[in-house]
Amino acid sequence: MPSSVIRRFDYDPSRRRLSVTFTSGDRYDYQAVPPEVADGLRGAVSKGRFFSARIRDRYAFERHPKTE
C-alpha cells in the first residue's frame, strides 16, 4: 500500500540497515534494525504509522538530505 509519508525503503540484512526515503526526498539510514522490524514495515498497512511507532527514535540513523 502506498504511503503519504514514505516514498520507498530498502533493507540490507547483512548490514541490518534500513534506508527510508521520505516524500520530501530526504533519506535516512537506520542502523542495527532487526529483520523482523523491516519485515513488519514491509507488511504494515500504514507504513507511516508503523515507522513512527517502531522505528523513529529507536535506532541510530544517518540523514542524507535531498539535494537539488
Rank of each mutant, 00 (worst) to 15 (best):
M1D: 14
M1Q: 13
M1I: 13
M1P: 10
P2V: 13
P2S: 13
S4F: 14
I6D: 11
I6Q: 09
R8I: 00
D10Q: 09
D10T: 08
D10A: 06
Y11V: 02
D12V: 10
P13T: 09
S14M: 13
R15E: 13
R15Q: 12
R17N: 00
T21S: 13
F22T: 10
S24L: 05
G25Q: 11
D26M: 08
R27D: 03
D29E: 05
Y30V: 01
Q31C: 00
Q31I: 07
Q31S: 04
A32Y: 01
P35I: 02
P35R: 03
E36R: 02
E36A: 04
E36P: 04
V37S: 05
V37I: 09
V37N: 03
V37Y: 04
V37E: 07
A38E: 02
A38Q: 04
D39I: 07
R42I: 08
G43A: 12
A44I: 00
V45H: 09
S46F: 15
S46E: 15
S46C: 15
K47Q: 10
G48L: 08
R49G: 00
F50L: 01
F51Y: 12
S52T: 02
S52Y: 02
A53Q: 15
A53E: 15
R54P: 06
R58Y: 06
Y59C: 02
Y59E: 04
F61N: 05
F61M: 14
E62Y: 12
R63S: 11
P65H: 13
K66A: 10
T67L: 14
